[in-house]
Amino acid sequence: MESPELKKLDCSSLNCPMPIVKIAKAIKTMEIGEQVEVVATDPAFKADVEAWIRKTGHKMISFVEEGKSKTTVIEKTK
């Protein structure tokens, strides 16, 4: 079930550092508690987004990898 606040961010075929840049920009426009679903194909995406989460303190709700496509849901916590 999807919560009504879930935003979508398509970063498919974008390369490092663009998915992280787009996530950072999207998070800035969001309210605390809102979530964003990000789809990316960058091979380094998993390692990069995990590092970004560790450093910025936002919350990763889920991470699903299907072939080249990776989907993650991030919640803004502050």
Binding site: P17, A24, W52, T56
Partner: peptide, 10 residues
């Protein structure tokens, strides 16, 4: 690339 990555980290 590093500059933009770092800026994304705040």
């Amino acid at each position: 690339i590093i500059a933009n990555g770092a800026a994304s980290f705040g």
